[in-house]
């Protein structure tokens, strides 16, 4: 479980990135952190990791001050998937995933299982720098999976940013499954459809504050989102023709590839309204509003 108690997060007491954050992410749930660029999503996640000490207030994981955790005590509780960085290491995929066991007892089976879960069995000997961005992101996710223990915390900073349309849903499905097994998942996402599909709770950060938190249907509303992002939103219904139903009868997993399936209720998803005049034409950069100089070929 993650708790933030009246926490100011950032580097400067005079101008914290996020001020007075109070929220809790419960065990066995997925909490999505959303917000505009530079709103403080990564700062929030890094504070929960303990990489940034709160300027004021407290950040607790399983009731313990995360800043005081380190070494094995931290590795046992929290697994972290960063935004992809510019890492040019020649270590193999398997060696990097194996680093997830750095402070924990060696477990080759866990490493192999993690690679398998992200579909990289056949790439395990390949140097990291030779993998595509999406594959690199999956390797970093696999490292966290190899480290993760049931009941632990998973922090993920835009884990689907470089993934294709096949792997983004699979990864979200994986997160949902881990949450069902007791993990506390805190994930920063930009794609609101992904948020609506996977999150139990949404934290919206904007203007230096946690401006809204709650279930998807309470936070993902056009008015709240428009205020945060500065663009108009509309709700659309996305049909979900084959939705796997969880065996225990609780939340459906819209991304699961296997198991029993049934017609699902679909999702109500907020989408940002684009500045498109006709639906086929986009204004060219610098063009006056309403002019359309480039035509999008319809499918």
């Amino acid at each position: 479980m993650i708790e933030l108690r009246a926490a100011d997060l950032g580097w400067s007491v005079a101008a914290p990135v996020l001020a007075d954050v109070s929220a809790a992410a419960a065990r066995a749930t997925v909490t999505a952190v959303i917000g505009p660029n530079a709103a403080g999503k990564s700062t929030l996640l890094r504070s929960v990791l303990g990489a940034i000490r709160p300027l004021r207030g407290r950040v607790l994981v399983d009731g313990r001050d995360v800043s005081a955790l380190g070494g094995r005590a931290l590795a046992e509780r929290i697994a972290w998937v960063p935004q992809r960085g510019m890492v040019a290491t020649g270590l193999s995929a398997e060696e990097i995933v194996g680093l997830g066991r750095f402070a924990l007892p060696p477990d080759r089976g866990a490493v192999r299982a993690a690679l398998s879960a992200v579909g990289l069995d056949d790439r395990r000997a390949q140097p990291f720098r030779e993998l595509s961005m999406g594959q690199q992101q999956r390797v970093l996710l696999a490292r966290a999976l190899a480290q993760h223990r049931p009941g632990g915390v998973l922090l993920l900073d835009e884990p689907t940013a470089a993934l294709d349309l096949r792997w983004a849903p699979r990864v979200l499905s994986l997160l949902a499954a881990l949450a069902r097994d007791g993990a506390t998942v805190l994930v920063a996402l930009h794609d609101l459809a992904q948020v609506a599909a996977v999150a139990d709770t949404v934290w919206l950060v904007a203007d230096g504050r946690l401006t809204a938190r709650g279930p998807c249907d309470e936070v993902l509303t056009p008015s709240i989102l428009e205020q945060a992002f500065g663009v108009p939103f509309a709700m659309v219904d996305i049909p979900s023709p084959r939705v796997a139903v969880d065996g225990r009868g609780d939340r459906a997993d819209p991304f699961s590839a296997g198991g029993a399936t049934a017609d699902g209720p679909g999702l109500r998803v907020p989408i940002a309204l684009m500045p498109v005049a006709t639906g086929r034409s986009w204004p060219a950069p610098g063009a006056s509003p309403g002019s359309a100089s480039r035509t999008i070929v319809p499918p």
């Binding site: 990489a51 960063p82 890492v87 997830g100 750095f102 402070a103 970093l140 966290a144 480290q147 922090l155």
Partner: peptide, 12 residues
């Protein structure tokens, strides 16, 4: 070789 955050998270 990775970020400090990643190294810290795995227990370094």
């Amino acid at each position: 070789a990775f970020s400090d955050d990643e190294a810290r998270a795995i227990g370094v």
